[in-house]
Simulated assay, not measured.
Amino acid sequence: MKATAARLLPSQMALEVQVPLRVANPSGLVRPPVYSVDGGPFVPLVQTRYIGGEPVETALLDSVESQANRQEALLYRHLPLPDVQVELFDGRRVSQYEAPGRILDAIFREATFGGVPFYQTPLFQAIARGGEEAERTLFRHSPLTLVYGGWLSYGDIPPEVAPKWPRLVALEILGLEPREAHRTSSRLDPLGVPGELPLPEAMSQALKEQGKRGRLSEAGLGRIPPTASPMDVAVKGAVLVGAVSLVGFRNLRLPQKAQEVLLALALLGLALQHKEGYRLRSGADLVPEGNGCLTVRALPSGEEVCLEVEPLREELDWLLGELPEELRWSGEPVVLQANETLNQLYRNALLGKAERAKAKREKEG
Rank of each mutant, 00 (worst) to 15 (best):
E196W: 15
E196M: 03
M203G: 11
E196L: 08
L168T: 03
V193Q: 14
S185W: 04
M203I: 02
P143E: 15
W165G: 01
A170M: 02
V169W: 04
V193Y: 13
E177K: 05
L174I: 09
P163V: 04
R187Y: 14
G195I: 11
D156F: 15
G155W: 04
P163N: 07
V147A: 06
V147W: 12
L191M: 14
D189W: 02
P178F: 01
L171F: 02
Y154Q: 07
P194W: 06
G175M: 09
W165T: 07
L199H: 01
D189I: 11
I173N: 00
D156L: 13
G195W: 14
A170I: 09
P198R: 06
Y148P: 00
V169Y: 11
T145Q: 05
A170E: 02
L152W: 14
P143W: 01
G175Y: 09
K164R: 07
S153N: 08
V193W: 15
E201P: 03
K164V: 05
L174Y: 02
R187T: 04
P194S: 04
L152H: 00
P194Y: 05
S185D: 07
P158H: 13
E201C: 00
R179F: 00
Y148C: 10
G150M: 06
L174C: 00
P190N: 06
V169S: 08
S186A: 15
V147G: 00
M203T: 04
M203K: 08
